[in-house]
């Protein structure tokens, strides 16, 4: 599991990265009411705005932590966006991406570094 300073995580399995927001981030956002998901098949560069997570009083953009093509989105979130609150790093994953540049992973934080980042 790798993290960005913007509180996204990337879970790597082969050349596929599963992306969501950290436990810390869900806690900060409060009750999540809607996740605007990206389109499958679309390619993104690192840093692009890729999804929007809405709580009652705030809308937060999610930026692509790595470059690649969207292979899958968590359609369950359309029905139950609260999964991002209850299980952010498991059932509340947001999308999967096929990595186009694995070296970008080196720029991300490991769990320990992220823990100290959020202090």
């Amino acid at each position: 599991m790798k993290y960005t300073s913007e509180h996204e995580y990337v879970k790597i399995e082969g050349d596929i990265g599963t992306i969501g927001i950290s436990e810390h981030a869900q806690n900060q956002l409060g009750d999540i009411v809607f996740v605007e998901l990206p389109e499958v098949g679309k390619s993104f560069s690192k840093g692009d705005e890729i999804a929007v997570i809405e709580s009652v009083k705030a809308a937060s953009e999610l930026y692509a932590p790595i470059s690649g093509i969207i292979t899958q989105i968590n359609e369950q979130l359309d029905i139950d966006p609260a999964l991002v609150n209850s299980s952010p790093e498991d059932k509340g994953w947001i999308f999967k991406i096929k990595l186009s540049n694995a070296s970008e992973l080196d720029e991300l934080m490991d769990e320990e570094a992220y823990a100290s980042h959020i202090g």
């Binding site: 009411v33 809607f34 809405e54 709580s55 009652v56 009083k57 705030a58 809308a59």
Partner: peptide
């Protein structure tokens, strides 16, 4: 659904 609106999204 007020996140669509100006007082939350502002320029978006």
């Amino acid at each position: 659904l007020s996140t669509r609106e100006q007082h939350i999204r502002r320029e978006k």
